[in-house]
Amino acid sequence: MTDWRPPLPLIGAWLGLLALLALTVTLAYVPLGAGNAVVALTIGTIKAGLVAAIFMELWHRRGLTLVFAGAGLFWLGILLWLGSMDFMTRT
């Protein structure tokens, strides 16, 4: 019989993502001041990391693929860093 069932890591990632979604919505209603934004973006980053590692298979990739996948993040970092510098430091 052909195996059509989803592998366990995929199911785990999917359930984990839904759990993190429930967690982030719940924590959004807890007054943490500036911490709310930090919590929301941290959980968002973990969710994006799960999607990239498991769904996008980066966990099983090495070398050049990771460099190509990381290139976008590298340039995004420069964009956000240099782009926001002036506004964040303006007095």
């Binding site: 982030t24 919505v25 959004a28 209603y29 807890v30 007054p31 943490l32 709310n36 934004a37 929301a40 973006l41 959980i43 968002g44 969710k47 994006a48 999607v51 990239a52 769904f55």
Partner: peptide, 17 residues
């Protein structure tokens, strides 16, 4: 999907508490 994860955190979650 990843784009939406960040849009969700930036659009829907701020100011709820």
């Amino acid at each position: 999907d990843v784009v939406w994860i960040f849009l969700f955190a930036l659009i829907y979650l701020p100011g709820r508490s």
